Computed example of a mutant assay.
Amino acid sequence: MTRLLPLLTLVLALCGLTGAADAFETRAKSAFVMDVTTGTVLMQKNADVPLPPASMSKLMTLYVAFEAIRDGRLSMAEKLPVSKHAMSFGGSTMFLDTTDRVTVEDLIRGIIVLSGNDACVVIAEALSPDGTEAGFARYMTQRAQQMGMTNSTFVNASGWPAAGHRMSMRDLALLARHLIEDFPQYYPMFAETEFKFDGRAPQNTQNRNPLLKLGIGADGLKTGHTQEAGFGLVGSALQGDRRVVFVISGLDTAQARAQEAEAIVNWAFRQFTQKELVRSGTEVARARVWMGDAESVGLTVDKDVSSLIPVLASGGIKGEVIYTGPLRAPVMKGDTVGELVFSPEGLPETRVPLVAMEDVLKGGFMPRIRTVSQLLLTRLQQGPEGAL
Rank of each mutant, 00 (worst) to 15 (best):
V121F: 03
T223F: 00
P184M: 07
A134P: 00
L238M: 15
R166V: 15
I369L: 10
D22A: 14
V360P: 00
N266L: 11
M167Q: 08
F89S: 11
K58D: 04
I123Y: 03
F154L: 00
E67S: 07
L233C: 02
T253Y: 12
R288N: 14
G131F: 04
V33S: 01
V341R: 06
M332V: 15
T99A: 14
M169H: 07
P50M: 08
V121R: 02
L59G: 02
P53A: 03
Q271C: 13
A47N: 00
I264Q: 01
P344H: 12
G334Y: 01
E78Q: 15
D302R: 12
A31H: 09
D241R: 12
E283W: 00
R73E: 14
G232K: 09
T93V: 14
K213T: 09
A201Y: 04
G72C: 10
M149S: 01
T350H: 08
V331K: 01
F66M: 11
S128I: 11
G39M: 13
V278C: 04
V284E: 05
A68Y: 12
Q185M: 13
A20Y: 06
M189C: 04
A86Q: 01
A68S: 11
D100K: 09
L347I: 07
R328T: 15
F190Q: 01
S280F: 13
A256M: 14
P184H: 09
D304V: 13
M87Y: 08
D198E: 13
F136C: 02
T324R: 10
R328E: 15
R170I: 09
G316T: 14
V284G: 00
W267L: 02
V33L: 04
Y323C: 08
F136S: 03
L354C: 00
I309F: 00
I264R: 01
P6C: 01
P353A: 08
S30Q: 12
K213F: 02
G315P: 12
L211G: 00
A218M: 08
A258M: 11
R270Q: 11
T150V: 10
S314M: 13
E105N: 13
M1L: 12
V245K: 12
G164T: 05
A86Y: 03
T153H: 07
F136W: 01
R328Y: 11
R170D: 06
L211V: 08
A261R: 02
A254E: 15
M140N: 03
M167F: 10
